[in-house]
């Protein structure tokens, strides 16, 4: 499903080069629920951006659903994002001046679906997250948990092959976080691949497989023993 091989990402400014990912390799099979954890600055977000085609990689290869991504142009990348990937963001990222219906409708419009088909899908997905009655509400009129459920509905509406969730419960209280996690588990059970980036280890436990990222690379297990010296040494190697 997703295959990253020796992916590197370097941010360059005039004076500084920052290696956010180095020789990062990962393979995720269809139907998996993978969590990606790691401390702040470990490269989690960069991984997410590259996996979600939000950023281009500097080096290495990335294959999504059997397709080499690195050679695609902007238009094709937009299309892949639209059709294959569903995004769930930490801050929900609903568009404040659109109502719930129009928010869920956004990716469907970019796909160019017919109006009736869009309506059918939006209504079905909102029902799935239990918010069909709030279609004409604005995001600001909903609670955080409800907003995140709308975001999930939006991610599902495109019927993507896999979901990318970025700290999906980061802005929610425990109760709401639980319900969102249950929803994700259900979706995964339906066959959708999920990659969830989080810094909360308890949450990561709910995934079927855990990846730990440190210094821009995959490290096995949770390895909380990373020493400052090692940290420094690998930075010096860069």
């Amino acid at each position: 499903m997703l295959r990253m091989n020796s992916v590197s990402k370097v941010y360059r400014t005039d004076t500084v080069e920052t290696h956010a990912l180095r020789e990062f390799s990962l393979s995720v099979e269809e139907g998996e629920f993978v969590s990606v954890t790691g401390p702040s600055g470990s490269g989690k977000t960069t991984f997410l951006n590259i996996a979600g085609l939000l950023e281009e990689l500097t080096d290495g290869s990335y294959e999504l659903d059997g397709r080499d991504i690195s050679s695609l142009n902007d238009r094709e990348r937009s299309r892949v994002r639209n059709e294959k990937i569903g995004f769930i963001f930490q801050s929900f990222n609903l568009i404040p001046e659109l109502d719930i219906f129009d928010n869920v409708d956004v990716p469907l419009r970019y796909r160019g679906l017919k109006s009736a088909e869009r309506r059918r899908r939006v209504e079905r997905c909102l029902e799935l997250v239990g918010l069909a009655s709030r279609m004409k509400h604005l995001p600001a009129q909903l609670s955080g948990g409800q907003q995140q459920r709308v975001a999930i509905a939006r991610a599902l509406a495109g019927e993507p092959r896999f979901l990318l969730a970025d700290e999906p419960t980061g802005n929610l209280d425990t109760h709401m976080a639980d319900s969102v996690m249950e929803l994700l588990a259900e979706i995964n059970a339906g066959g959708t691949t999920i990659i969830m980036v989080t810094h909360e280890l308890t949450l990561a436990d709910r995934a079927k497989r855990n990846i730990f990222v440190r210094d821009g690379n995959v490290s096995d297990g949770y390895g909380s023993d990373a020493s400052p010296e090692l940290h420094f040494a690998s930075a010096a190697n860069a």
Partner: peptide, 16 residues
């Protein structure tokens, strides 16, 4: 700006 980024993430092309 943020909304535009979100739209882009959700699949909007530059011309869109």
């Amino acid at each position: 700006t943020r909304q535009i980024g979100i739209r882009r993430a959700l699949g909007a092309t530059r011309p869109a």
